[in-house]
């Protein structure tokens, strides 16, 4: 099967200011996104996500390396024919109305007038902008602009969507909408490549993630493995009878994370699970939750940057993708 996105040793150095000071934004990125995949691209601010995306969209030129969309080099405008793009800070010709803008974009995608009209109406309905379809974009709120950006990205019924922080600026309903759209498109076999800072989106939407740290790719693979590495700790929440105290059982040897009324939450290793659960039941208590302890995105980034603890990059090498 062919890839939707492929990069090889992709690097970018920006030249800044009069003295042409070099800023290395991306170094030797090798990435391959399969068709039909939902791929999350994460990394802290300034990690190089938008830089990568702009190279893919032909907006900036790579200093080194190559990139392809559906096997076509990104320097060829035709590579973008089946690609929908939402930029990080969408900004539109504010003297146009959404309908006029979509018409212009549709023409550039070689769509027929009738198709454009039908599709525009449908998409503006989808992103709840039907009311504003004939209003100048100038007066739009940030979220409305973002919604229009999503409609614009979907216009040509693209096989690949490249979205730079699609959830940014959206209200909860908008976020839900975008998540629904991504799931629908995945079901239709489309490929989605998006950057985000929201861990919930990654966990619920992505097949795989790529993690960038200061322009270096540090991880590619399943998010579960990144967030719940093997040998990880677990957390157990139990409900215990009144007058119970941890010290009475082996639970006393575990680390108590929090305690509220009759609920207790402990941290424990995989080996301690069975003895701890038996002790809880023996004491007449009940287990409320038992789950692997998830690392936060911050911890993950810190780990990958090699600044946090001993374990880090070593146990996070990508399962060859």
């Amino acid at each position: 099967m062919t890839s939707a996105i492929k990069t090889s040793k992709l690097s970018k150095q920006y030249k800044k200011g009069v003295r042409q000071q070099q800023v290395s934004a991306l170094l030797d990125l090798d990435l391959e996104i399969r068709r039909g995949e939902v791929f999350g691209f994460i990394g802290s601010n300034g990690a190089g996500k938008s830089t990568t995306i702009k190279i893919l969209m032909g907006l900036i030129q790579a200093t080194n390396g190559q990139a392809w969309l559906f096997e076509r080099p990104v320097t060829d405008p035709a590579a973008r024919l089946h690609v929908g793009y939402l930029s990080e800070h969408p900004h539109f010709h504010d003297f146009l109305t959404p309908l006029e803008l979509l018409h212009l974009l549709g023409t550039m995608r070689q769509m027929e007038r009738k198709t454009i009209a039908r599709k525009s109406e449908e998409l503006l309905g989808l992103v709840s902008l039907s009311e504003a379809a004939n209003r100048k974009i100038r007066g739009f709120s940030k979220g409305m602009v973002q919604r229009l950006g999503i409609a614009a990205a979907l216009l040509g019924d693209p096989d690949l969507l490249i979205l730079d922080e699609p959830m940014s600026g959206l209200d909860p309903l908008g976020r839900h909408l975008v998540a629904t759209i991504i799931r629908d498109l995945q079901r239709q076999g489309k490929t989605i490549f998006f950057s985000t800072h929201i861990i919930h989106d990654i966990e619920t939407l992505c097949d795989r993630v790529g993690i960038l740290v200061q322009g270096h790719q540090k991880y590619v693979g399943s998010i579960q493995e990144a967030l719940y590495p093997a040998g990880n700790l677990f957390e157990i929440t139990v409900r215990m009878p009144e007058q119970w105290a941890p010290a009475q059982t082996i639970l006393g040897s575990l680390r108590l994370l929090w305690h509220k009324e009759s609920l207790y939450n402990f941290e424990l290793t995989e080996a301690e699970i069975s003895s701890a659960t038996q002790a809880v039941i023996a004491a007449g208590g009940g287990i409320v939750t038992l789950e692997p302890k998830r690392r936060s995105l911050e911890e993950l980034f810190l780990d990958l940057s090699g600044k946090f603890g001993e374990k880090g990059q070593s146990d996070l090498t990508s399962p060859a993708s």
Partner: peptide
């Protein structure tokens, strides 16, 4: 200004040279 405000990027991101 279209280039300064990035409004033109949307157009340049289309399949045109």
């Amino acid at each position: 200004r279209e280039i300064e405000t990035r409004a033109g990027y949307l157009l340049m991101g289309q399949p045109i040279s």
